[in-house]
């Protein structure tokens, strides 16, 4: 079998997904035995022009990280779709918007104003903002258009597989690379490198009856390292989050924030969590329920921490 041609790209991302690929450590040499890298801005020096010169479908597998924040992200997504046989939405940002997707809580102009005018480290008395075209003496310069809203990869192109996580763990990355190299591909649209169980199914904390009289913020409570975090009053998203991360946050006494997204069949993780969380509220009167619920800080920003652009109400139009 000839070697696979592999590409990896980041749109609105942090590079953590690329580093997750490198976290397979010395196995990267095994990867080099089965695949040639033909585009990967983090690690190798191919340019957009090189990708444009490839024949359609030249790339066997493209791992796409990051949300679609501007016209360049969308343009490269379309380019890579055209040049790739298999396109994988890799990581929470590409799948559902991820952390950059929190920007869908804000207005485009408010973001620009905060960044280019108000920020403490900025002096911009002439109120200069980025523009898509700018004429300089020598010619015209172009910048991408900053979209009104953050989009998911699947909003702009057809996606073959989804690999969740912020970032996906190195062991899962390696497992998926092996599957790809074997040529034994799962059905299109499948979520790979994860389980279809919930975090709670894999969590080893002791669970009893879930009844919460008070919700706590982490600094208000000494967390019992053995007991279920939700039962202790922390808004852990384990009940509605796909397993596969190895329970990293919960094993460090931090409540799950849902980066692996919902399990198959759930269309809106946040809505599912509203249901799950409300059902553990132990109130005898509506007033008591109100009090307990009012202690949950920033519910929307927590329940949709990694998936606001993929949610029903904030999906980009």
């Amino acid at each position: 079998m000839s070697k696979l041609k592999l590409a990896s790209y980041w749109a609105a991302a942090c590079g953590g997904c690329d580093v997750a690929i490198l976290d397979i450590n010395e196995k990267i040499i095994d990867l080099a035995n089965v695949a040639d890298i033909v585009f990967w801005p983090l690690a190798v020096d191919f340019k957009y022009a090189d990708v444009e010169a490839y024949a359609d479908g030249y790339i066997d597998v493209c791992l796409f990280h990051g949300a679609i924040r501007n016209s360049e992200g969308e343009h490269i997504a379309k380019l890579l779709r055209q040049k790739s046989k298999v396109l994988v939405a890799f990581g929470s940002c590409a799948i559902a918007g991820g952390i950059p997707g929190l920007a869908n809580f804000k207005r485009r102009d408010d973001i620009l104003d905060r960044v280019y005018i108000q920020s403490d480290s900025t002096q911009n008395p002439e109120r200069v903002f980025p523009v898509t075209r700018y004429q300089v003496l020598e010619g015209e310069l172009e910048l991408p258009e900053f979209y009104k809203e953050v989009k998911c990869l699947a909003d702009v192109v057809d996606v073959d597989y989804f690999m969740p996580g912020c970032p996906p763990t190195a062991t899962q990355v390696w497992a998926v690379i092996q599957v790809i190299a074997s040529g034994n591909l799962p059905p299109k649209g499948a979520f790979v490198g994860c389980s279809n169980k919930t975090m709670c199914d894999e969590c080893e904390r002791e669970k009893t009856e879930k009844k919460v009289k008070k919700f706590y913020r982490p600094h208000e409570i000494m967390v019992d390292p053995k007991k279920c975090l939700l039962e202790q009053g922390l808004t852990c998203m384990g009940p509605v989050t796909r397993a596969g991360c190895g329970n990293q946050c919960t094993s460090a006494n931090l409540p799950c924030r849902g980066c692996y997204g919902p399990v198959d069949g759930v269309i809106d993780q946040g809505a599912k969590y509203i249901s799950a969380l409300a059902s553990v509220v132990d109130a005898d009167t509506p007033e008591e329920a109100d009090r307990i619920i009012s202690e949950i800080v920033d519910p929307a920003g927590t329940f949709y921490r990694y998936g606001l652009p993929g949610s029903l109400l904030r999906r980009a139009k």
């Binding site: 950059p100 920007a103 809580f105 804000k106 408010d110 973001i111 900053f146 920033d298």
Partner: peptide, 13 residues
């Protein structure tokens, strides 16, 4: 590229 952390961190605990 711009993501706007400066703005969307506002309102988060």
């Amino acid at each position: 590229e711009l993501r706007g952390f400066e703005k969307f961190c506002e309102g988060r605990p």
